[in-house]
Nucleic acid binder design. Sequence first.
DNA 1: TCAGTCAGTTCCTTTAAGGAACGCCTCGAT
DNA 2: ATCGAGGCGTTCCTTAAAGGAACTGACTGA
Lengths: 168, 168
Amino acid sequence: MQRTQFGAMACSIARTLDVIGEPWSPLILRDVYAGTHRFEQLQRGLGVSRKVLAERLNWLVAQGVLTRREYSTRPVRHEYLLTDKGMELCDLLLVMVRWGDRWTAGEAGPPVLYRHHACGRTSQVELRCSACGEPMHATDIDLLPGPGADSPDEERLDVPDVGASERL
Amino acid sequence: MQRTQFGAMACSIARTLDVIGEPWSPLILRDVYAGTHRFEQLQRGLGVSRKVLAERLNWLVAQGVLTRREYSTRPVRHEYLLTDKGMELCDLLLVMVRWGDRWTAGEAGPPVLYRHHACGRTSQVELRCSACGEPMHATDIDLLPGPGADSPDEERLDVPDVGASERL
DNA sequence: TCAGTCAGTTCCTTTAAGGAACGCCTCGAT
DNA sequence: ATCGAGGCGTTCCTTAAAGGAACTGACTGA
């Protein structure tokens, strides 16, 4: 498949995809978050091939999203736990859940409900502006080049410039 | 690659991935959101192969995330626009941006800034509970089986049961 | 008439996913 | 002590998908 590496792009979306964009990675994250920490359980629960699971776990550990913790010496056995970095990635899962619930759940309704500790109620996440606290959606936003933008280009805001050769 | 279909799983994350989980799809969505609507521009901006771009665009149109609008008869030319369903998917991009900015941007800082129309300030999205309005993160949540759950299993909450044969 | 634009499509090569088998270590029962 | 099962990978082969370049086809403008 010889897949393009997204990590080098000057775009936080591409760089996030570099970390969890591979097939299965978000589902592995979901299961670890939901309490499945061991290789065998993950493999059976997901139905993913052992080869891919091993690759993904190594990658996620290398990226600092998961940690490997020894839960048994002799034989040495590890389990996989979320780091802070990984736990924050789970916020992304919550937003995926909201969209999936809204647009793909259909008649049956959402397969999982989320109860908020603070208020004890079953609810969903909502996106709000960190500055004013009002709802903030993709429609309510202007894009501006930030300090990490790599090319002061015309109107191409977050389009990566990897090749940097054919400009046009 | 003979990839597993996620769409059939009883999990909103898996079903969302089925829609935009393929490589390039989120970046295509990003560019359409940022104002790139035509095949040629998308292809050049992303550096994706034309074959894959055509496949992805067809899929996203089929899923109702994008619409094809004719902007020229003779020759017939279409441009790609976000539907409401697609625009709501962009919320997901905003959350990816926040994580990417925080964990992958490094020294250079975020490549793109977001200005909130309502308050005019440059800010980020924040996740809050739709019921009580307080911050709501993956750490603040309990998972409960919902109406759309497919198997009243033990503790495996949102793990799909596609095989349904090997239970253990 | 000829180059150029735009949107795909086709073909070939390379790489990744699926899936099954195997390897290795250890514990527990016979 | 021997056998089987649990747990965690690794290896191998097949199949499918990504990359990339070339090609088609309908137009435009010089």
